[in-house]
Every structure is written in structure tokens, then in C-alpha cells.
Amino acid sequence: MKILVPIKRVVDYNVRVRPTTDHTAVEISNAKMSMNPFDEIAVEEAIRLKEAGIASEVVVASFGVKQCQETIRTALAMGADRGIHVETDVELQPLSVAKLLKAIVDKENPGLVILGKQAIDDDANQTGQMLASLLNWGQGTFACGIKVESETVVVTREIDGGTQTLSLKLPAVITTDLRLNEPRYAKLPDIMKAKKKPLESFNPEDLSVDITPRLKLLEVTEPPKREGGVIVDDVAALLDKLRNEAKVI
């Protein structure tokens, strides 16, 4: 069985971002970019399935600017077998990504697509679900456990206050949650080997997918600043402030 893992290049989780001066975007010039952490978990899970003899090949795909190839190389260094890059400078929204993925699935025929549950930059949490419905496949989202059986995959999902276990018919779409696994560190020799692993590159037109954005971003703003606290002299002063300033009692 082949596993397809889509990976997104996002601003690193350590980088403190801020809106651009004109509030139309997030300022990321020269900021450190990394693989979306949930996608790293997805890559790790796919590699483990391959190491366990369940998967035969792990293919990673990333869409966007040229530098996405670096992200693909990171996944190849972790142990994925080959990469697919669809190059575009257009801002990609979840539906476009899902459509591009469908086109790749049609070409590659994987038995399983494992995605991150969401990307830490826009937190959309939509692509996996959209892909499942475009493909008309079953979906197991927020996975914290995956067990592949012959015709099915058993997915344990994180839900409010506990877990839920589903059995899906293969092929299927799975999205990963934080507790699924702890991704490995890439080793130096594997980073070298990754440079030589196959990486195919396409344009969105090659796949006949329309990626025109459909959502318009109106504004990006910083969260309101927290005001400094004050120390009040006694209970009476506290009550007075709660009543007359904060107006909560």
C-alpha cells in the first residue's frame, strides 16, 4: 500500500509573528520556516507503517513556492521515499489544496492519505475533510492511534473528554493529532541521501486544477494588549473597582 502525506511549509512555531504595517498579512520576511508540526507527525506515522511492513511507499507532496522543496527534503530525510511539488506563488486556500491533492491521488492511487489536522499558520482544519469528500472516502480526523488491518483501518480519535474509535474502509483519509507519535530527528547521512531522492515538480495547470482563491482576507490584527494589573489596598477597594470600573458585579 502506498501512503500519501501532504506537507505544508509554515512559519516555525517558535517565531513570534506580527501583522505587516498595512495589516493585510502576517510579516514573515526572513523568518524561519518549517514543516507544519502536525504534518511532521503524519510523515512519522507513514514511515512507521512502512517500517512495520504495512506500507510499501511513502510519498510526500507540498504545494506552494519554490522553497517548499526544502520542506519536502526534510520529509525525505526523515525517511519518506519521494516527493511531489506543485509550484505556485498564488496563495493556496484549503479547497484549492484539497483539489490539488485529489488530482495527485488520482495519479498515484494511494491506499491512505495521512494529513496534519490543521496548519499552525491559518489553523483552518479543513483540508483533510474536504479531500475526503472530494474523493468520497471515509475520514478519521484528529487521530491519536492508527491500526491498519487488511481491508480497513482502525482510527482512534481525540474527542472532547476522551477518545472515539472508528473503523474505516480503505482507502481512507486520516488527519493527525498531537499525541499520535513523537517525530524522529533526521540524521546527517539521511539528510545527504535525501538530496538524491526523486522529487517531481508540476504546475497547477499540469493537473488542470483551478486554484483561484475564493476567500478574501480583510484584515490581520494583533490581539489586544493586556493592561497591567493594579494592587488594591483592601477588600472595599476591590469591590469598588469590580462594581464601578469592571462592572462585573
Binding site: D12, N14, V15, S29, N30, K32
Partner: peptide, 10 residues
């Protein structure tokens, strides 16, 4: 460990 430390952009 590798990668630790500041992430200065500019």
C-alpha cells in the same frame, strides 16, 4: 540540542 536558541529573522 540542535535547533535550540533564538530564531532571529533580520
Amino acid at each position: 540540542e540542535g535547533g535550540g536558541g533564538p530564531n532571529y529573522p533580520n
